[in-house]
């Protein structure tokens, strides 16, 4: 049986050669991209490091929608989930610093992640050009309404606390570990696969307490199924003004999640400014404002250098606190 017909082989080889010769054109979508000309000359791609539907995704989609007019170009949102954002980051930040591919990144990847897993290959801050700060989301500790814990003091006086987290390397894990560490409470972390499953476990009384974003818990709190105990924000939450902060209770634990727009390092200043100005205009749109308000998300109005300062400050602070308190996020926190 003849496997290859020589005529077919030649034909295919010729075609393949033609294919390679033609390949010098620009590739759009995927990870291609090149600069030049007056920015922006074509669509700007925003990479979201999570699955569709999460708050990063929603924020980005709302942002890009309002961004098209001030930018004078269309925008594309690409979801590239994986490794807490590292896959998306590595992909975008290794590309050309031309402003056509940017990413919306979470603070936790840089400030919390390194405390949990040692990664020699982690994305460094100097691999990015920070374009603009976007949002801040605060955490609140909750218990089911059937819980014997009425106030945060009750939890901190308990002997053996099982607390839910939404996974290793998340801000809510850090916040609770720091709080229980400062109060010298014997507590065990039970990590779940995201905020939803954690909340389910809290509602079902499978864990004693849990800490989630305000938006995730708000409806349940209103319905009387959950009781908020303490917020991990610097000041009291606008949505839940009666809930004390950890700082008020004498524990200096301020942890939040922040999101920002970043481009590869070396993005020309004029491109960055142009993009930042357009984003400024987009975030003032009514649609975007409504989305933030409906989701109890706070604006984080910071320019590029402030974003960098915040990331450095938070990383440093969390590192110092975990070391001083002897909190080990790597194992049984």
């Amino acid at each position: 049986m003849r496997i290859l017909s020589s005529r077919g082989t030649r034909g295919a080889a010729l075609l393949a050669a033609t294919a390679l010769a033609l390949s010098a054109c620009s590739v759009q979508g995927g990870s291609g991209g090149e600069g030049g000309g007056d920015y922006p000359a074509r669509a700007v791609e925003f990479t979201v490091p999570t699955e569709p539907g999460g708050s990063t995704d929603l924020i980005t989609r709302a942002l890009t929608k309002s961004l098209e007019e001030p930018l004078g170009q269309s925008t594309v949102v690409v979801n590239k989930p994986g490794a807490n954002g590292k896959i998306a980051g590595k992909d975008v930040f290794s590309g050309n610093p031309d402003g056509y591919r940017v990413a919306v990144m979470p603070q936790s990847l840089f400030a919390v992640g390194p405390l949990v897993v040692e990664d020699p290959d982690a994305i460094q801050l100097d691999e990015m050009t920070f374009v603009k700060g976007l949002t801040r989301e605060d955490y609140v500790m909750v218990v089911p309404s059937s819980s014997p814990f009425e106030k945060v003091e009750d939890v901190l006086a308990a002997d053996n606390v099982k607390y839910g987290t939404s996974g290793a390397g998340t801000g809510n894990q850090l916040a609770q570990a720091l709080l229980f560490g400062s109060a010298k409470v014997n507590a065990t972390a039970v990590p779940f696969d995201g905020g939803g499953p954690q909340l389910t476990a809290v509602l079902g009384g499978k864990v004693d307490v849990g800490t989630v974003h305000v938006a995730e818990a708000y409806e349940q709190i209103q319905a009387g199924a959950l009781r908020p105990l303490v917020a991990f924000s610097a000041e009291r939450l606008e949505a839940l003004p009666d809930v004390p902060t950890a700082t008020e209770k004498g524990y200096d634990v301020v942890v939040d999640q922040r999101r920002f727009v970043a481009a590869p390092a070396g993005l020309p200043d004029d491109v960055r400014d142009k993009l930042a100005t357009a984003i400024d205009e987009a975030v003032s749109s009514e649609e975007y404002a409504k989305l933030l308000q409906d989701n109890y998300i706070t604006r984080w109005e910071a320019d590029g250098s402030e974003v960098g300062d915040q990331l450095r400050e938070a990383s440093e602070r969390f590192k110092t606190m975990t070391t001083e308190l002897g909190v080990n996020l790597k194992g049984q926190s």
């Binding site: 699955e51 569709p52 539907g53 999460g54 939803g196 938006a215 708000y218 349940q220 989305l291 409906d294």
Partner: peptide
């Protein structure tokens, strides 16, 4: 999860009160 997001976009938070 995405449906949740879609409701949020509409200013409706799904929950026990819905």
């Amino acid at each position: 999860a995405i449906m949740f997001g879609a409701l949020m976009l509409q200013g409706i938070t799904p929950g026990p009160l819905l």
